[in-house]
């Protein structure tokens, strides 16, 4: 028997680590990887809850999350490359294009 709480703890620790990465890292690519990590942790929770409750919806939603993550990867990488072309770096702290 696998306790639900254990899976939950694992998932949220990974989530918080991912969030921590977003907060401290300045490299846009690593921030992006952290986001993927967070998505992955949420996916684990979805599949686990699906298993525990017996409903399959959680797994389907996990699949949707993956699909959207793939789309996000395409867009995110395109943004990063075009930003790199413009500025010559991927330092988020120096990204001021949104600044008023």
């Amino acid at each position: 028997m696998l306790r639900m709480e254990v899976i939950y703890g694992l998932s949220l620790i990974m989530f918080v680590i991912g969030f921590f990465g977003i907060l401290v890292r300045r490299n846009a690519i690593v921030m992006f990887l952290s986001i993927e990590l967070m998505l992955n942790s949420v996916n684990i929770l979805f599949v686990a809850i699906s298993k525990a409750s017996g409903a399959l919806d959680g797994q389907v939603i996990a699949l949707f999350v993956m699909a959207i993550a793939a789309g996000e990867a395409a867009i995110g990488m395109a943004i990063i490359t075009s930003y790199y072309r413009k500025k010559g770096n991927v330092d988020i702290d120096r990204a001021q294009l949104l600044r008023w």
Binding site: L33, A73, A74, M77, T81, G88, N89, V90
Partner: peptide, 16 residues
């Protein structure tokens, strides 16, 4: 995909 981008984005030369 990310690895490809890391390859394209040459961080060492960007002085970053």
């Amino acid at each position: 995909f990310v690895l490809f981008v890391i390859m394209l984005v040459d961080l060492a030369n960007g002085g970053f």
